[in-house]
């Protein structure tokens, strides 16, 4: 084994010291959130630096959960995210299939035009999309929350990159064996596409779960509120009940953190890869 020189050891210590300092800065707000979520209002006035509540107010969680229909908010968020992601993966892989396996007129033109639409910031579309949804009478429905996000040029691009790496003979061989073009997509391509499906699935799920401005604008009724909008309402209504607000923040973050810990390895690697490919 190679022995570490003194200078090396000092350097290592220094690196760990900085990284731990950074980690504390990253995690402390969460720790403090959980600690505050268990404090009583009187407790909060005493010292903000005290992490252990004098009395654990587990009730805060129950009270927060009941202060707003959070069960409904969670349900809405999950419905919207699942349907959006499902449709997006299906539609995008179909489109990518056409772009990578077939010849048709204006193929490159359509592809480049699609890529061009990625330059349009979503915020610039808020007003016209709102008007379009109003004319369709889709405002304040699940359709408004889901349909505009069922297509994703980024996903099409990502799937296409993946399909291009597959051998072309695969398709010809399948056709010779009597496979229809949809049969090839369904029985051969889809099962092969698990890696991009997972990566894109995780990202669009997260995107849908965390989206805020759009649902804030296109929905009105309590029954259709998603979690992020619900949190905003809770913040404006609960005002100074910080214990309850922290409890609500905690239980809305927990599913994400648990999910992240489960998929983290794949997640972090893919995040970097997709980031760089662009």
């Amino acid at each position: 084994m190679e022995s570490l020189s003194r200078a090396n050891q000092v350097q290592r210590f220094f690196v760990h010291f900085l990284l731990i300092l950074g980690s504390i800065a990253m995690l402390f707000p969460f720790l403090w959130m959980v600690s505050t979520s268990l404090k009583s209002p009187e407790d909060m006035l005493s010292s903000s630096l005290n992490l252990i509540p004098s009395q654990f107010m587990w009730r805060n969680y129950l009270d927060a959960w009941n202060a707003q229909p959070f069960a409904r908010y969670f349900l809405n968020t999950i419905i919207v995210a699942v349907v959006t992601v499902g449709c997006q993966l299906f539609f995008s892989s179909l489109a990518a299939y056409a772009f990578s396996f077939f010849h048709f007129p204006f193929k490159n033109f359509i592809f480049i035009a699609l890529l061009g639409t990625m330059m349009i910031p979503q915020q610039a579309l808020l007003v016209p999309d709102y008007v379009i949804l109003a004319n369709l009478r889709w405002l304040d429905t699940y359709l408004a929350l889901i349909v505009p996000f069922t297509a994703s040029v980024y996903s099409v691009f990502f799937f296409r990159q993946f399909f291009m790496t597959l051998p072309r003979d695969l398709y010809e061989a399948a056709v010779v064996d009597g496979c229809s073009h949809f049969g090839f997509y369904f029985r051969i391509l889809l099962p092969l596409s698990r890696p991009p499906m997972l990566t894109l699935g995780i990202f669009s799920f997260l995107g849908s779960w965390n989206s805020f401005l759009w649902p804030l604008i296109v929905t009105n009724s309590t029954e259709l509120r998603v979690l992020q909008v619900g949190l905003a309402y809770f913040l404006s209504e609960a005002g100074t009940e910080w214990g309850l607000l922290m409890a609500a923040s905690t239980f809305s973050i927990i599913p994400l953190v648990i999910g992240y810990l489960i998929v983290q390895k794949r997640f972090v690697e893919n995040q970097a890869m997709t980031g760089l490919k662009e």
Binding site: L19, S23, T36, A248, S249, S252, Y260, Q264, Q271
Partner: peptide, 23 residues
């Protein structure tokens, strides 16, 4: 470390905004 530095990224901006408002 990688795991830790990435946690704020995945949490929703609305929830952490509430936390920081109190901070």
């Amino acid at each position: 470390y990688r795991l830790i530095y990435f946690i704020p990224v995945i949490t929703s901006i609305n929830a952490v905004s509430i936390v920081w408002k109190l901070i």
